[in-house]
Design a protein around this nucleic acid. Structure first.
Lengths: 194, 194
DNA sequence: TTGTTAGTTGAACGTTCAATCAAGTCAATC
DNA sequence: GATTGACTTGATTGAACGTTCAACTAACAA
């Protein structure tokens, strides 16, 4: 049923992969061309330049949060709190699978791009919001004390994930990730009813 | 008493400033030369290349954590827990003063450099360790429950700061920082004796 | 057949980059 | 006053970069 990927798709795919692995600045157009097996003219037929390609990549990430991130992580998980930690476990796996090299692609871009265009900045923000909104829904389904600031707690989850990825990558040791997640679990446990 | 800064010092100073504001990759050698008012030959007389300059910058940051970061933040603060939040307030101020553009220089570098040399990676790790060690000392002086994992809690403080800076910069809104810090305070309060 | 549209090709362009180096300065030492 | 050695100068190099473009192909339509 699924037709072979279009040239445009191959370019976006390659850019997603390379921006994740090498970062935006360190990925050259020719890197992308080689990976996607495409000539430069084709790339510039579909995209005005490198930055418009970044926009497409960020849109692809945003649209993939549900199908490519949440659905696999939540397969077979029902408890709303456990869904949150299953999501975090997905990032842990990505770290372990890459020897603690690669973490969250959006987080890396967010700190690498020091003066992003408004469109790029807003797309990164949209990615974060979509992520925390999903966590927020879980928290609202859980039995937390009524006075709990669910928004702040969902944002803290993202905060902890991103900060933990940063330290894990820097120390090349997933134990930093585990200790941070354990602290988050302890914090959330304190907010449960009873 | 303090003599005029040496050429070397001016170069390191300029590089610290520019790596913080523009990032490592986006700072060119000629940016540094202009800022430091130095010719390229002088820079290459003191440093083998851009990366050796990065090493010097990371060493300068590490050596400055006490005198340039902790001492000013802790001026007039005695309570060990309040010292921690005074430190975080310093980062908040930096964000507000720069319209939520610039956060922690080490954190930005840690996510920007995807394949850092071992020496660079270890220096970033040393910066993080020096930071969390300072927080750890505060936590050990505080009256926390004896079963508290003080190391994990100190690392969580760094995690929250870095993650909060990332979101604050992306949303250009310091409220994200404040909500994260409020959650951290709530968590630490839960771990106090009684 | 002829024209039109959508997509592809890859050599070439101008710029910017990190890095080099031969020549020069100047205060201290002999 | 000659010599030394630490430091400075800035034009220059060559590679890598993002981007452009005129020519080309294939499919479909008039």
């Amino acid at each position: 049923m699924d037709s072979p990927p279009t040239t445009r798709d191959r370019i976006v795919q390659a850019a997603m992969e390379l921006f994740w692995r090498k970062g935006y600045g360190s990925t050259s157009i020719s890197d992308i061309l080689e990976t996607a097996k495409v000539n430069s003219g084709s790339l510039y037929y579909f995209f005005k330049g490198k930055q418009e390609l970044l926009v497409a990549v960020l849109e692809a990430y945003r649209d993939g949060i549900g199908p490519a991130l949440l659905n696999p992580a939540w397969n077979g998980v029902d408890d709303p709190i456990e869904k949150i930690f299953a999501l975090l476990a997905g990032y842990r796996r990505a770290l372990v699978d890459t020897d603690c090299f690669y973490g969250c692609p959006i987080g890396s871009l967010a700190l690498e791009l020091h003066e992003p265009d408004p469109e790029v900045r807003e797309l990164m923000a949209a990615n974060f919001t979509a992520w925390t909104d999903a966590v927020r829904e879980c928290l609202e389904q859980a039995d937390l004390r009524p006075e709990t600031d669910v928004r702040a707690l969902a944002e803290l989850t993202l905060t902890v994930m991103e900060g933990a990825v940063m330290q894990t990558r820097t120390f090349r040791d997933v134990a930093y990730f585990d200790r941070a997640v354990a602290q988050l679990r302890q914090h959330i446990d304190q907010l449960r009813k009873e």
